[in-house]
Design a protein around this nucleic acid. Structure first.
Lengths: 134, 134
DNA sequence: ATCATTGCAAACACTTTGCATACGC
DNA sequence: GCGTATGCAAAGTGTTTGCAATGAT
């Protein structure tokens, strides 16, 4: 908990209990959680928590670079604590999302067609290992 | 118009006027249009058109492989007539979306970590040529 | 006459906004 | 005490659903 507090402060974000818990959740659950998943998971620990706070906090984190908003479908936004760039594979059968290390397959330059690339996301779709074997 | 009719029939889709016009729009406007853009553009030509029909038709096209649903943000879905795979660059300043040929930079195998990859999308973000020069 | 397509209106689901309350230095 | 963070409720936005009207063969 203490390391999260220092991390937030180092980014100029005042470390409220809600923010600490949301950051901790993102760090401990690298499962591309939705707002609702985070909210539901933390509610027992923070009974007064509101979804607005989860939304506020996540957009603050994204803005400050602590988290990344993933674009995997147009239904619900998903969030990752910011780590090295990686792809996301969504199984079209079971809907599970897997992290994929795409660095062996992708080498995006800093500039393409005169546009400056700041970051990118790769969304892969198909049938996952588990579904294929059933 | 005749070529669209034949194309739909070859896919087993009955070529209603609405479907023909939506397909034509996708073919002539390769600008990743949203449902609303398609609807608004066609309304003068089909005054009775409803958004439901645009939604219905697009999901039929996606299902039959005639179009692709893009996921560029978590706000609105965008659609492309199905062509060779390419990336999409969104300018974070002006919001414009550019097609990017990523084939030189990306080589995704058919299988990764045991998962079967059917298709993928690459969403790039940054500052576009135009915005950089202003 | 039958079946598919269309289109209105209502329902839905996720997200944002407005504003009053509570918290922390 | 004052500025920020929180959280409820309401509004907003994109999408889907139910169902009746229309159209095509």
């Amino acid at each position: 908990m203490e390391q999260y507090k220092e991390y937030l402060q180092s980014k100029g974000i005042s470390p409220s209990y809600q923010r600490l818990k949301i950051l901790e959740y993102l760090d401990l659950h690298r499962t591309h959680p939705t707002v609702d998943e985070i909210y539901t998971a933390l509610l027992p620990h923070i009974p007064t928590l509101s979804k607005t706070t989860v939304y506020n906090t996540l957009s603050l984190f994204v803005q400050e670079g602590l988290a990344t908003m993933l674009v995997l479908d147009n239904v619900e936004a998903r969030f990752d604590i910011t780590v090295h760039p990686h792809g996301h594979f969504t199984c079209t059968q079971c809907g599970k999302v897997y992290d994929i290390d795409v660095t062996p397959f992708v080498h995006i330059p800093n500039t393409i067609d005169g546009h400056t690339i700041q970051y990118y996301q790769i969304a892969l779709k198909g049938i996952c290992k588990d579904c294929a074997s059933h």
